[in-house]
Nucleic acid binder design. Structure first.
Lengths: 218, 218, 218, 218
DNA sequence: AATGAATGAGAGTTCATTCAT
DNA sequence: TATGAATGAACTCTCATTCAT
């Protein structure tokens, strides 16, 4: 049985190395301009081999999305469960901002994928993994907000799901602007501090979910 | 002189009809999967004719973006300049939401374009028009927030440009979620009211820019 | 009848102006890269109008060839008929060299046409004119050599037609090299004086057709 | 190691077969009218496969030119180095004439290429090979004439490079006429023996480079 | 398991030519 | 006569995918 296990392990390693290569290529050229040939060359593998590990280009795309997402999820988990809901949300937002700053290309790739319509077909091998990640992340975030509404660190009348979507979707939209800062700056009539954009967005969110001040200090 | 005028008018009409057709195709297939052949068939024109009116596919893309944007701009202008800054912002957000609801396909196309990196080259014929629209819109929005900070209807410590970007970018991001509601809903562990997403986002923004209640009622 | 004549004259002028424009375009871009659109713009005429004066692009090509050829013919005629055959040949070669130096683009265009296989169809409107020119030129040159063989200024055993073809074809070939001097120079292991090429060729021809020296000076 | 070698050999064979097919097509239709589709059909290969072996149409063109040129070079080398310069030149000219007679289509293709301006870009894969061939050929011919001027079998005052260019360029020009014999014959006022054209040209060249008879027989 | 040659449909774009006005 | 919008076939080149070895 050692042989089968070693094989499986080797297979996983090889798969991971292909994703590594694909990430480098996708980040360099964008997912659209990247070809399977580019990925094969970068992975020092033949093109045919790629198809032994990934059903098609979209499946490879999905695997990259999973990676990015799992980084987010890990950060969200690392925040822990001891603080107040408000504090946890603050730290999650901060953690994600740091994560995005560290891997902006990941974000770019994911955005391109989202904006082009989430083409992953449910029968792609990586689909289940991806689904599990989203579910985990969303569940975690919703739980944080729910806790906040209960422990009094957030307004009680918030709809947790809506708040999570505001955090998630809004951040995505702002990152879309930040990642295209050059193109946008050229079109803005007034200067904009792009580096401050996401932090100030988090600030605004937090201010909006905070309980009314007059209720804070009776 | 009537002839030249009529020609010019007919040319504009034909151009508009091509954009109509392109919109339908782009919305049906997505801008990436759409081909110039598809557009030609939809417009009941030969492919060569397309190139009489648009330099290339990107230029056609840009024309669609311009159209969507100009709808936004018109709505923003229609809000008028008589109310308080806060009230104007509220109405602009509301107007844009209605606009987006009426033409979601536009938004989808624009998002795909933004996420793939704003490829418009400055020498495309429609570029200047596009630029002017963005500048107008951004200028208008910034002016509204500036007014709000001065007339006391918004917090005085707001950075108007940041607020505008939060409105703009955040809405985009949320619309990205709404437009992919089916794909996302399948991945959400808890149900989400997608129709409420953008309105509740506007509400949150407005709440965040409003002056502190304890300063409102001294 | 004055009206018809004026019309005919105007038609000729318009035709000539189109050829002017076509020459400029062909010389600038080469006959292959030149489009009927380019010619129409250069002629400040609509594309459709071009087809009122020329059956198709080849016919326009032919008209340009005629122009170049008629210049040659005029130079050949201007040499006169008073000198010895040898002297006339010398002066014709010299005249053609000067003509080619003055209008190298013409030569280039004609060469491209010849090398791509003389595509003129006999039913093109300008075909007869072109044919007449070639006939005239060849007849003139052959007559010169024939005279030379009879008046003792050339070797008596020459075949006049062969000599004319050597002059004509050989010059063409050498001009082909001269016109591509840059490309060729880059490929030559030894330097070459391209300016001397055609004159030295004429010299060689003349030396070869000259009577044996021992017969010159008895 | 046998596998890699076999692959390489097969690759060369396939490449050669594509050039075969391209030659047939180019000769039938002319290089301009020939399309990559035509070549693919003739080679019984898919269009995509062509691009695995040749970067683009020009590269395929270049490969054909190389082939024709290498035949010339081989003939020039086969002449050997034992005779007088004059005799070597005579035999080279003769050899090239036979070569051209055997493969006129090659000549036609090369002429079309030359006349359209030597478009080969230096980064085409076959460019170096082509360059080496031209350099070899030119060097060989110049060496022959130099030898002739030194060994007394040619006039001492000849410029070897000029003579070589006369041979090369002049022959090209005459072949251009021969290859278009039908079109030209229809335009000639007097009959012309096209088959004799190149041999009689070689004769003329040889006569012109030969030393003066009165110096030969003192 | 790995290869890489082969595929072939289809992309965007061009341009000589036509024809209704 | 002159126009120029419209055509549509043809072009070169790309690339995700397959399959014999």
């Amino acid at each position: 049985m050692g042989v089968a296990e070693r094989r499986e392990r080797e297979r996983e390693q090889r798969r991971a190395r292909i994703i590594d290569a694909a990430e480098r290529v996708f980040f360099r050229l964008g997912p659209l301009a990247s070809t399977m040939d580019d990925v094969a060359v970068e992975a020092e593998l033949s093109k045919g081999t790629l198809y032994l590990y990934f059903k098609n280009k979209d499946d490879l795309y999905l695997a990259i999305a999973c990676r990015g997402l799992s980084r987010f999820v890990e950060r969200a988990k690392a925040v822990g469960d001891t603080d107040s809901g408000y504090e946890q949300l603050r730290r999650v937002l901060e953690a994600q901002h740091r994560s995005a700053l560290a891997h902006p290309e990941h974000l770019k790739t994911m955005l391109a994928w989202m904006a082009s319509g989430f083409t992953a077909s449910p029968d792609a091998p990586g689909y289940d993994e991806y689904l599990a990640l989203v579910t985990t992340l969303m569940g975690r975030l919703v739980a944080i907000v729910e806790r906040g509404t209960r422990d009094g660190s957030m307004r009680a009348d918030l709809d947790p799901v809506q708040v999570v979507m505001h955090c998630w979707g809004g951040s995505m939209g702002l990152w879309m602007l930040v990642l295209n800062r050059d193109a946008i700056a050229a079109r803005m009539p007034v200067p904009c501090d792009f580096d401050a954009l996401v932090p100030s967005y988090a600030e605004m969110i937090l201010r909006a979910v905070a309980p009314r001040p007059d209720k804070e200090a009776p």
